[in-house]
Amino acid sequence: MAKQIAIRDAFGAALKKLGEVNERVVALEADVGNSSKSILFGQAFPDRYFNVGIAELNMTSMAAGLALSGMIPYVNTFATFLTSRALDPVISLIAYDHLDVKLCGTYSGLSDSFDGASHHSICDLSAVRSLPGMTVISVCDAVETEKAVFAAAELSGPVYLRLSRAPAPVIYPENMDFQVGKGIILREGSDIAILATGYMVHKALEAAKMLEKKGISARVADIHTISPIDRDLLIDCAKTCGKIITVEEHSISGGLGSAVCEVLSETCPVPVKRLGLTEYSESGDYEEILEKAGLSGACIAEKAEKLIKGN
């Protein structure tokens, strides 16, 4: 089995590493530094670390000010609070003025499972994806996390980085080619394409293995950049496979599935099944509530088979 590293641990380590080579990088935190792991940056660079307490709105507007004066702020809190309490400055200052603020939403999806729906984040992608000029990245393993943390600093303008609490298998080699806006085909196939993002990439790979046993050849792609989305790859998937399933730890409205449908309906319409949340989830073991939401490998494989059979 592949080595497991929690995305948040990889994130904290990467942010610290970035701080070592880029002095313009500062980090802001709202009292969840031990959870987001921004504390690793804070311990290394106490002068460039601002823990504002439980005040996400203040933190995010402060980040706008820092960016307006030449710094590159990485803003840390739970994805759900960043895209609810702190959404106003994201819309009104950061996206509007295309500021160099990197919004790091941790514990996304259902990954903070036991805390329950109030701490899950199932509409963050829809909130940020609709903002003009906002780059939206959602990572699936430790290597990709580090690449994304560094890539965000190089990009001009705002970035939303969707992170997770979940320990995830490391699937990429250290020298992977991570390009913002370019999806990655992880497995070739021709009967159906499973497009996944974040932790769901691993579930999609599981599903593809199950489908293979049934003689179904499934392509799996990691859509790590939700915005701007890789149009060429989507169109190629539609043309090559003819049927598409999207999988995300997010509401089926407004996230990856919606983005895929928007592109394909205008370019190459094919049947698309969107998998994700259709209602609020609940407290419970992570894998158990994912399964209940239809987001296990087996559930995805079942939906893929149905789609291929045309029902």
């Binding site: 805390d115 729906a117 701490h119 609940e282 407290s283």
Partner: peptide, 11 residues
């Protein structure tokens, strides 16, 4: 408490 299916949510 905090288990899937429970009425007793984490919050």
């Amino acid at each position: 408490l905090r288990q899937a299916g429970s009425r007793l949510q984490g919050h």
